[in-house]
Structure formats: C-alpha cells, structure tokens
Amino acid sequence: MFAYTIRRLLAAFVLLILMSMVTFLLFNASAQDPARLACGKNCTVEQIASVRHKLGYDKPITTQYALLIKGLVAGRDFPDDAATKKNAPQTITHCGAPCFGYSNFQTSLVSTLIKERLPVSIWVAFFAFVLWMVFGIVSGVIAALFRGRWPDKILVGLALVGYSFPTFFIGLVLYTYIALQWQLVPTPEYISPLSDPVGFLRGAILPAVTLAMIYIAGYVRLTRAYVLEAMGEDYLRTARAKGLNERTIVIKHTLRAALTPITTIAGLDLGALLAGTPITETVFNFNGVGKLTVQSATNGDLPTLTAIVLISATFIIVANIVVDVLYAYIDPRVRYA
C-alpha cells in the first residue's frame, strides 16, 4: 500500500512536469507575442521591449521554461539580468518560491494573487460539497427506498429540473430573490471562516447552494442507482433470510455497499471544484480563482493562466490518488500492490 502510494506520487510528479511543458508551450510559443499581450493594447514599441525584457520573453524558449521551473522551486527575479541587478536594484521585483511569474495586468506577483484568491474558492467548494453530499445522498436513498412511488418521482423530478437550468440562471435567481428581494440572507460576500464562521456561512450560502444544485441532481440519480443495484444483490437476500430488521438491512448492508463507489466520484468532483468556479464566482462577485481565470483569459494574462492550469491539474491529480488510496481502506477486496 505504501509502495503503491509512493509509486502513484512519483507518476503524478512526472505527469505534472509534462503538463507544465505542454501548457507553457501552448501559451508562450504561439503566434502571438507574449510581451505584447502582457503589455496591453496601447503600448509603444519601447514599452513592449521593456516588458519583454522584464518578464524574460527575450530569452530562448527553453531558457524561459527553465526559469519558470527555477522560479517554482527556488524563486526568481524580474527582470533577471545581472546588469540591472547591479545598476538599479530597486527596479527588480523578487518573486519567492513557489514563483508562478509576474502578472503585468494586476501589477502583482501571480503567487500573491493566488494566495488571496484560492481560499475563497476552496472554502466555497467545501461548503457546496457538504451540501450536495448530504442532500444528494439522503434524497437518493429515499428515492431508492420508495422506488416507483411518489417520493421517488418527486425527488428524481426535482433533480432533473435542478439539473436542466444553467448555473448562471440559478445563481441569478437566487441572488435576485433570496438575497435582494426577500432578503432572507445577507448580500453574498466572502468572509473568511477562520475569522467569522457564521458570517462565512451566511455570506457564502447562495454561491454554495448554486454550486451544489448542479451536483445534487447528479448525486440523487447516482445514489438512487447504486442503492437499487445493492438492493438487488444476493447478499441482501441473505441478510433478509437471517431475519435482520429493515433498519440494519438498509443502513449496514445496503448503504455500505452503495455509498462506496460514490466516495470515488465525490472525491474527484471536489478536486475539480477546488481551483475555482468561474460562473458562480462571477455571478456572486466572489474574488476566487474562478473569477481570476475569467479575468486572465479576457486579458491574455499568460503567467496567471499558466499558474491556474497547473494548480487545477495538481488538485485533480492529488484527488485521484487520495480517492484510490481511500478506496483500499473502504473496500477490503481492493488491495493495491
């Protein structure tokens, strides 16, 4: 098991290196001049040249990639040249490890941006995760237990309705009615749960619900399907034949079997959400990584985009490993070697 985990982590590391190369190449070796993009529309030739020098775009592409990796591991300076360091050290921006680069648009280090934005996305994602797991699984189990009868029909119907509306629509409707018109909750804003947990819950409830809505729909159907599958298993017939009561049959025998595969899917879904949700964050004006993604994509802010891609990839790869390792603990039949 330990060996398996180590092997997986090594493979993940190699995968991330490859991802970084591909991302870097796609962004920086394209037809567009990255320095021009970074400088903006109304730049003079001199300004572009200065930006190019500052961000290191005047160096060969392999050197640029090496600098990116060096920055991640050890930090780097902008501009990274000996002459400037000697003559005008005050114009040098130092970027400590892990350095993702410098965003000329935000006139800020990318790592600083990420550090500000990431907690917003992560906390909202976790909030949504708890909501969809609780409501999705409970409704799914109820639907399965009442298969074909009205609770099933209503829950599956609602799930379908929730699933069919686009995120921005649900978000806007919730925002407009719940927050603004009926004022059932305060205007959504991000308050760090570390400083004010209740404030966080009140401020983030609408974006979390919006996010959860999409997933609840899927999880109701998934849970229902897995529970029904488990209910058809021979070992449930055995459990009945033993004379167990329905409660034990449902909770101990059915749910244990049905919920195990859901753990996998839930872990992966959460991993994918951690690096931000562009639509929801934009609708509720939450300054998370998702909104940053939208801004950076609009502006062609390559260093920030590269950083976001790498961070999302890391989350997803790590979530995969965590889920696989976790599975071995939940399902005794699975033993990795």
């Binding site: 021979d234 070992y235 055995t238 033993k242 079997a257 399902d331 005794p332």
Partner: peptide, 20 residues
C-alpha cells in the same frame, strides 16, 4: 422465524456473502 426456525443456503456463496 427467518434465520431462527427456517434458514437458507444459497447457490453462489460469493455473491450471497457481503463483500465488505
């Protein structure tokens, strides 16, 4: 009565036992 007065042995013991 089930399991106490009447008990049953099924065909496929692998699928009839709970894997977890």
């Amino acid at each position: 009565l089930r399991g106490n007065d009447i008990a049953m042995v099924f065909q496929d013991p692998l699928s009839s036992l709970h894997p977890y």
